[in-house]
Design a protein around this nucleic acid. Structure first.
Lengths: 233, 233
DNA sequence: GCAATAGTGTCTTTCAGACAGTATGAC
DNA sequence: GTCATACTGTCTGAAAGACACTATTGC
């Protein structure tokens, strides 16, 4: 029935690495310096080594690209993409991963031989291969998981203010949230954030209390996004 | 840097096919008749053909295994599993899919050369390869998506009663739900179910109104499971 | 003083959860 | 009639959303 039932293919991992810079959601992109799609922007990634687990390959690429301690960063598998014609070099299946990086005090640059740079997500179009689709899936995953998990804290440094956490939600969702209701919601959700007892002065206004991540991973009740559900005829 | 950067691997799709039979959640398993794991139970699956998209391969296997019209069944990608030692035959990466089949009036049996059979999920242990993990991930995905999507209707026939839909939730979640509150919730959620105007008599009791799937795919507000969140220290 | 942000309190509405009571069939 | 299930209505408490108000800083 099968012509070549054990058709050999090659496997890559591609990374959707998200961070927030200057109140905008950015993704790390590389400029391709080889064919195919030479010169086009693409998600960072690379081939999986023969005896390497998929997540190990993703974490290796993550460390190479961001020059950060990838081991402490949030990393989760997104999806596998395997359309037969997705890469002109042959059958290449990619397993995409979503990574969340904290806002970096020092801008990361030139960490790798390749020219990697942070690009605001709303300015992105026409990525190489099917990377537009992968990016869209990564964004949707991140937006969705903000609701029901503590993923938002992965965008923050070790300690953060409630205002910074709120800005994560606002930037990733692209909507404004009521600061007062958000404050009540976050501090009353058991295990979401823990007060450190310290405060931090801003440019202006009252200094904000500092928090660190709590032990919770899922949120109940969830932080709700909006009522734009598809529930109508 | 890489020893063999383009290491060839083989790709399979494995299927977690869920259905409800006699008020119990079942998954379709096959008995392996080849090494490795000969004689052990495993998820149905097979190699992806050279020019076949991943989802096409999954739908093909689904149709082969269930002898049903796989085209109308719910099918979604679950995860990729690629531990280097997950298959003793070499580097084999599997992309798992979750399929939901309606309760079948006629028991499906002997649809394929292989001995496939429905097994209640609570009786399953010791599947071949890493299929215990894949099954666990599939169950968790299904349980989670019952909350926020209309996935539950995929377990039902074209027309169904609210009681049948409630039994889907109860069986998949393994908890009891209040029939009266469930009824109010489902019928007041816009686009979830549409009344057909017809009724169906049961063995006993008042005949129930029949509904069909509505246009909604996501539910807002969600149908909540329970408060056993991990939000405590 | 003003501007800006942090944080508290209060009211309203929505909705989950509990449960009384009625409706309609089979026997 | 009894029994079983379908369905409606009502009450309560939890939590989201709106928003007035106070607190603490830099200027």
């Amino acid at each position: 029935m099968n012509r070549r039932p054990h058709a050999p293919v090659r496997i890559t991992v591609d990374l959707v690495i998200l961070t927030i810079r200057a109140d905008r959601l950015h993704v790390l992109l590389v400029e391709r310096d080889n064919e195919p799609h030479q010169g086009a922007l693409a998600l960072p990634g690379g081939f999986v080594r023969p005896d390497e687990a998929l997540e190990d390959a993703a974490r290796r690429e993550l460390a190479e690209e961001t020059a950060l301690d990838g081991g402490r960063m949030h990393l989760e598998q997104l999806n596998a993409y395997g359309a037969p014609d997705r890469d002109p070099r042959g059958r290449i299946i990619t397993v995409a991963y979503l990574a969340i990086a904290p806002s970096l005090p020092t801008p990361v640059a030139g960490s790798d031989a390749r020219a990697a740079r942070w690009v605001p997500v709303e300015e992105i179009e026409g990525l190489a291969f099917d990377h537009d689709q992968i990016l869209a899936d990564g964004l949707e995953r991140a937006r969705s998981k903000l609701e029901s998990t503590t993923l938002a804290t992965a965008f923050c440094a070790d300690t953060f203010t409630i205002g910074e956490l709120r800005r994560v939600y606002e930037v990733v969702w692209g909507i404004a949230l009521d600061p007062r209701n958000f404050n009540r919601k976050v501090t009353s959700t058991d295990g979401f954030v823990l007060p450190t007892g310290e405060t931090r002065s801003q440019d202006t206004g009252r200094p904000a209390a500092l928090y660190r991540r709590g032990p919770a991973t899922t949120l109940y009740p969830a932080v709700l996004r909006e009522r734009l559900n598809s529930a109508h005829a």
